[in-house]
Design a protein around this nucleic acid. Structure first.
Lengths: 194, 194
DNA sequence: GTAGCTTGTTGAGCGTTGCTCAGCAAGCCG
DNA sequence: CGGCTTGCTGAGCAACGCTCAACAAGCTAC
């Protein structure tokens, strides 16, 4: 009975770059349903149609893998928030804020998973998150034409936490109009930085 | 060579309540060094001088265990923050804020571990955290004599996030005096609630 | 075409960890 | 002393992260 060989998908040999990208992509897709650190190698390998061992060929350790996934998520956010060059100065921050709210509205689960994983224990993941926050402070202070001292940075970072929390809650239960939300956030930032 | 029996600590039989309390206490002690979810049953059992199996006698699952640990941490914070009865109304919030900063100053690592574990993925742990935040909003709104509507609750919760983040950063690198910090936090809350 | 090299890929297997289960034994009561 | 409750243990299973030796796909050289 060797008649009909099982219709297995033809084994595909991919380039290193392709495979890596595919694995990270799978991680991103799994992100909204599973905390990053709880991704199992088995599950990811199964979805990619490869053996567990191969994943360890590309990522020496599980942590290295989900750090890469987190970094990919951070990069997506970063690219979406960055203002297009040529934007007038006083539109920079409002624009980023508006795009941030849009991002959370669209990718709520993924974004929450990103933030949670980042805030959660793992130092490697936190580092990616902190790095992104730091870059955002750079852009914000530059856009607002404010001097860059330690105290102001702390306050702006804390305002990020405020924004993240409020926008997160607001997408779950909108207690005000979108415009009101944006204005409120904007006002708080103004008060804090002047 | 059965001469000198090893000086094992005499096996001790404890009451159910004692044992439970001891295990939670060990969890609290481990909290600052290890994210809650990464506590290993082996380690906890070893420290308690009991077998792995016994831990599962008291906590059906690992998650149940570290949720209990988290709840214990939350209760400690809660008791420390609660104002003593008889405090004049306009001292309530400033007092809680002052005690909160003191708490973070004293138990920085444990508190950060608590917040991180809480913000991080696990729904059971998050629930404990959210519950505590909700109770704190109740107290704050009551103390400030403000009506309790959904929008205000969201803003106050977001202000918690702001406070948590800023105080956390400040204990790491004090960019202003303690008094300035308290005034800043107080002012932001005032602006947000009026 | 085939020999040989590079490198994507796999299967078997090891150690740790969460969790189960049958049964031992400490202390109390009759 | 016999029996009961219940704190407690050891052996062992399944899942998961990770290792390692070896296979095989696809390219180049002759």
């Amino acid at each position: 009975m060797t008649a009909s060989p099982a219709p297995e998908p033809i084994r595909l040999r991919r380039s290193a770059g392709d495979r890596r990208a595919q694995l990270v992509q799978i991680g991103l897709e799994l992100l909204p349903t599973t905390p990053v650190q709880e991704l199992t190698i088995d599950e990811v390998a199964r979805r990619a149609g490869i053996s567990r061992s191969l994943l360890f060929h590309y990522f020496a350790t599980k942590r290295e893998y989900y750090t890469a996934v987190t970094r990919a998520a951070a990069d997506l956010l970063w690219e979406h928030l960055l203002p297009r060059p040529g934007t007038p100065r006083d539109e920079l921050v409002p624009g980023m804020l508006d795009r941030y709210v849009g991002w959370v509205e669209t990718f709520r689960d993924t974004h929450l998973a990103f933030v949670r994983g980042a805030a959660g224990g793992d130092p490697w993941v936190s580092e990616v998150y902190e790095e992104t926050r730091a870059r955002l402070v750079d852009v914000a202070l530059e856009a607002l034409d404010l001097p860059d001292d330690a105290r102001r940075r702390q306050v702006v970072l804390a305002w990020f936490a405020f924004t993240e929390d409020l926008v997160g809650q607001w997408t779950r239960e909108p207690t005000m109009s979108r415009a009101e939300l944006l204005t409120l956030l904007r006002d708080v930032l103004d008060r804090l930085t002047t």
